[in-house]
Structure formats: structure tokens, C-alpha cells
Design a binder for these strands. Structure first.
Lengths: 177, 177
DNA sequence: TGTACATCAGTGAACGCGCGTTCACTGATGTAC
DNA sequence: TGTACATCAGTGAACGCGCGTTCACTGATGTAC
């Protein structure tokens, strides 16, 4: 059953977007091709009509996540950005959140293609933030690292451990002061 | 072929230490039980004479890694700690490095037991650093988050990307100033 | 102290399972006439 | 515009593989007498 060109484009987009959220939630090894295709409303067999390998999709899904971040960062002040980044909402909702926090550690163990996509995503984020508020590149790198560290550590604590919130609160007030 | 009590203790310790390094290098899913036992000079079948499950070992290996960090942090000034933490050596040698940077993201996807071990490790690190230099708890949490973020992002960049070193350099100078 | 036996860490084959990937097939779409 | 046919995204069974875990067996250690 062949499918219209537009349907094909839609399906591909849906696979990438679904993967983007699932990878951020559960990591590269945490999501299988079959589950991923099923979540996108398809069967696993068709996967290789769209992508050369799971790693290829990983790379595209990452780019897609960075684009989503870019959109939602548009027109946001530094203070608003920090407030959102270190919110409980962002910490507890990885699928829609920042790619850097969700996938940096996974990326470090992946081949060069994926690392390059990640680095390009950091650069995009830096360019965008520089446009929104006049900070220097060094300022932005420093702030992003600070934010990522805080979020990553907070997520690693048990849900009911006060340390999880403490990390967010301490870093938020330091970064904004 | 039964083995002396001392040999058993030694073997167990070697498994935990080997696992501690391998998990930090490749993540929880990146190392199998068989490979792990083989790296410790044993065969995989004996694994369950020592541990209830792979997750149990993960928890122990994490504690072991935090203990190693504690040892090497002893008698180190804040400046020395930051210098080492953001060195290229530390970035490129995950197996002996900080557990927080290596396993925070993996931990966020693991069950409560492992998250609790991780949080306890953070607390140990905080206590230790507080003893070495009189900083407040908030100061230390803030600095640790900052360091972890910088290292994690740097590791996610391709080896030959100047951004990898730039992140370390920028954050080092900011944290120390 | 010497002997007989129970213990149990270690071995390696085997288990079921889910993974990424391949493949023959389907049938509506899109094209050529 | 209508017809005949090639295309190819999607399907679902199947592939080999490595995973975590189990198990019957081994044989030196440690214990009971």
C-alpha cells in the first residue's frame, strides 16, 4: 500500500518528533526502533525506508530537539530563560525539555556524527541567546554549563529527596544574582 | 573449586572496582555482566554468587566511585579541585573520574535505589569539600553543579572541536574568579 | 593431628527475550501513453 | 481524459546476536569428628 508524498513527509516528521521526545526521556539505549515506530503509529519494518540506521535517526531527532528549544527561546530574556530552565516543570518533563541536559552524557559515548550534531546544537543555542540578550559568548557558555549541571544533578536525585529542589533553588538564585 | 574466604573477598572487591570504572566509561547499558566479569578475571556464571542483580552491582559500583573521589579530594584546596575537575585529563579519562559527571544522566533513568545512592554520594562530596575549605553548603552545591555541567558538555563535543576546550577554559576562569 | 565430608565460589552451557536490521510481499499512488 | 503499469512506503515475519539470568556440575576450602 503505497502512500501519498505528503503522507510520507508527515510520517517521517512524526517519527523524528516522536523519537526526539522519547530519546530525551529515556536515552538512546532506552528506546527501541519497534517501540519508536509504534509510538509514531507505524510498524517497525518501514523504519529503514526513512533512515539508514537508528544512529541516523538519533542525529536527526537531536537536531529536531534543538530546533524546538530555539523556538521556545525566541524573545525570552536571560532571567526568564534561567527561571524556566531550573523550574521543577522542566526537570520533571524531559521529553519536551532541553536536549543538552537530557542527552549530553549519552552523546559523549556516541560516534562522531552524533557528537558533531550536539556541538552544532550548542552553537545554535549560543547564537540565539546572544541575539536575545547582549551577553558575551563566554558569559553564555558559562551560564549554560551552570544550568545544565544543576538540572542534571537535580534529575539524578530521588523524587522525594529535598536535595533535588535545593540544587535548583541554590543555582537559580546564584545565576540570577 | 571452592576458593578461600580471603580470595572471595578479593574477587568481590575486584568486580566492584572494575565495574565502577567501566560503568563510568560506558554507562550502565554500555557494559554487560559477562564483559564485566571477564574484565575482573572471572567468568560470568559466578556473578550471582556475589550480587542479586546487575542493578545491585551498579549501586555498589557507584558508592565505590564516590569513595575513590573522596580519597583523592582529601587535602585539596578549592582551587586545586576546580583545576583538576576541569582539566583535559579528567575530561578524557572518565573511568577514574567523577561519578557525578559520568553517571548523573544514567542515574536519572534508574530506579530509586540507584538514585538514592547517587544523592548520598553528592552529600558525601559536599561534606568532604566543606571540611577541606570553609565554604557554605550553598556555595558548594553551586560550584559542583557548575563543574558537572561544564565537564558533561565538554565531553559531548567531538574530540577535535575547539568548543570542547573552550567550555572548560571559560568555566574554569569564571569559577575561580 | 588426621580423616571424612559438607560447603559454596567459580565454571561454562543453556534459557528466554528484545534488540537492530533484512526481506518478500502488498496495494494505493503517481506516471507514461 | 482514461487506461495500464511501475513505484515504493508500509507490513509483519524472520534473521543473528548479545543481553541478564539460571543451572548442574566441579573441586579446593573449611569444618566436624
Amino acid at each position: 500500500m503505497k502512500v501519498s508524498k505528503e503522507q510520507v513527509r508527515e510520517n517521517r516528521k512524526r517519527i523524528v518528533e516522536t523519537a526526539s521526545a522519547l530519546f530525551r526521556e529515556r536515552g538512546y539505549d532506552g528506546v527501541g526502533v519497534a517501540e519508536l515506530m509504534s509510538a509514531a503509529g507505524l510498524t517497525h519494518g518501514g523504519f529503514y525506508k526513512h533512515f539508514g540506521s537508528k544512529a541516523d535517526l538519533m542525529s536527526e531527532a537531536m537536531s529536531c530537539g534543538f530546533s524546538q528549544s530555539a523556538e521556545s527561546t525566541q524573545g525570552v530574556s536571560r532571567e526568564q530563560f534561567v527561571e524556566f530552565y531550573l523550574s521543577r516543570q522542566h526537570r520533571d518533563c524531559r521529553g519536551n525539555g532541553c536536549v543538552m541536559s537530557a542527552l549530553a552524557a549519552d552523546t559523549a559515548r556516541q560516534p562522531g556524527l552524533i557528537k558533531a550534531t550536539f556541538a552544532a546544537g550548542i552553537e545554535r543555542q549560543l547564537t540565539l541567546l546572544a541575539a536575545e540578550n547582549g551577553a558575551t559568548r563566554a558569559d553564555l557558555i558559562d551560564t549554560i554549563a551552570h544550568l545544565v549541571g544543576a538540572l542534571v544533578l537535580s534529575r539524578a536525585c530521588p523524587d522525594d529527596d529535598p536535595l533535588a529542589d535545593e540544587i535548583l533553588d541554590v543555582c537559580r538564585s546564584r545565576i540570577l544574582s
